[in-house]
């Protein structure tokens, strides 16, 4: 089976505070620590598990500059066979339609049976990459998948719905599946994996060849703002036990939750 996984290199929000850049429309990236998008870790793990189970080869894709290659090396270290990175400066600050066009461009004429990606990214969080790529390729798509199993030319998946509900879907391959967190337990990178990754190829594609002309206007970000501080916010202080007790009391008081 030919498997592909798309990953994104995003600011590590656990380590650093995000700030809006001077243009007022994008996030400031300089100086921030970056890491692989959390959702993509689960997609990558699922891809490796499927490859181990049904056999085949796994290609990892990334739309990003050279610094983002770190996330591709992670893919190679945990089991991808090769990696492809596509970039062009024109993609800097691109909207999801443009990114999907770039993803489509990176896949090229290779026919993958199964393409996995994270359900969304932790920076902009559009959640559109997977479905738009499927649309561009003219293949099936299921989003927010929290359980999946490949059976022959089909894949059985469970889609996450509101309120803890799930929907079971049977999809014919080829398909793009967007993976929700929690579907598996992403493995740690091993030292041996890192050493093996060094010998695997990372192909770099020039994104200048991707036609973005019809995509740019589909979604234009006017401005980006941090959420305003809420009125009447109260900081609870004290030991964890005291804070928990106070929390409980407040929720009961507010009603409807407990």
């Amino acid at each position: 089976m030919k498997i592909a996984v798309f990953v994104k290199h995003v600011p590590d929000v656990a380590e650093a505070d995000l700030e809006v850049a001077a243009d007022g429309r994008t996030l400031k990236g300089a100086g921030l620590p970056f890491e692989m998008n959390e959702w993509d870790r689960f997609a990558l793990e699922e891809a490796v598990l499927i490859k181990d189970e049904v056999g085949g080869d796994l290609t990892a894709f990334l739309i990003g500059d050279e610094a983002a290659e770190e996330s591709l090396r992670r893919c190679l270290a945990v089991g991808a066979d090769r990696a492809v990175r596509l970039w062009d400066e024109a993609l800097s600050g691109a909207n999801p339609f443009e990114i999907a066009a770039a993803m489509r461009g990176a896949v090229g004429d290779d026919n993958y049976d199964l393409i996995l990606c994270g359900a969304q990214s932790s920076d902009y969080g559009y959640g559109m990459g997977g479905p738009l790529l499927a649309e561009a390729l003219g293949i099936n798509s299921v989003a927010l998948v929290n359980k999946m199993k490949v059976e022959g030319s089909k894949v059985l998946v469970t889609r996450e719905l509101e309120g803890g509900w799930g929907e079971e879907v049977e999809v014919n391959l080829p398909a793009v599946i967007s993976i929700q967190t929690g579907i598996n337990e992403p493995r740690y990178v091993s030292i041996l994996g890192i050493k093996k990754a060094r010998k695997k190829p990372i192909d770099v594609l020039d994104g200048a060849g991707v036609d973005l002309s019809s995509e740019g206007g589909k979604l234009v970000v006017e401005s980006l703002q941090a959420p305003p501080l809420g009125e009447g916010a109260e900081f609870l202080e004290g030991s964890p036990e005291e804070v928990a007790e106070r929390c409980l009391a407040l929720l009961k008081e507010a009603g409807g939750v407990l």
Binding site: E70, R73, Y188, S190, I191, I194, R198
Partner: peptide, 13 residues
């Protein structure tokens, strides 16, 4: 890049 990957692997673990 290999040293950075090792450092990150240790940090994550």
């Amino acid at each position: 890049s290999e040293q950075i990957d090792i450092q990150k692997a240790a940090r994550e673990f």
